[in-house]
Amino acid sequence: MKTSNIKELLDKIKENPYKTIVVKTPHCGTIEFVVGEGEEVKGPRGKYKEQPGTLLAYLTRENNQKPLYAQERGIISKIYPFQKGDFVEANTPILEIKHYLTKEEVLELILKETLYLFRAPEKGKYYFVPEIDKRIKAKGCQKVKLHPGEEVLILSRMKRETFLPYEGPEGIIYHLYFKPGQSLNAEDILFGVCPPEDLESIKEVVLKVKSEWEEK
């Protein structure tokens, strides 16, 4: 990918540097909002992300009042019309957060355009094979080099597991787009691979984004 294209892409993102995060209920319960529209919220903080983000709402189910915290910083752009004490079903949108993209997120967007993307062939849950999983946990994914045909993932569905070989150019796993064990649909991106010859140009992209993108 050419540098000019990246600049173009970056400019396009700069035009609308926001992402709308729709917060949904994790389960059923009665809702009570704590924040209001237009308020600023923060994501988890602390060196170890040990402090939760801003309290958005309480969801009470079976006498258990559970706090819902913001996962990203931003501004509350919309609150869905529920009254305090309304019963909401699982997976119901309750509010939206307008979130200014961070460096990492911009990078992720741009990398999607530059890396070779390995996608989920089928619906199901995906895990790395133990050997690769170990290497990723120990040294990070960028130390893992993949060859076409190598068994890289375990696909788990209907209580059965099958091995999935990697297909694509040889290279390192540059970025992970899923969490192992997450339920994915077919065509969802699993990870991005960077062929060795592209490594330098990708590093440039990263540098460019890091220097040009200012977080708000």
Binding site: H27, C28, R61, E62, A90, T92
Partner: peptide, 19 residues
């Protein structure tokens, strides 16, 4: 008809039952 997060979560079933 109610949407719940999981058929395996007793809390969901009972919350819907009460409601």
């Amino acid at each position: 008809l109610f949407k719940i997060s999981s058929y395996q979560d007793a809390n969901e079933i009972l919350a819907v039952a009460d409601y």
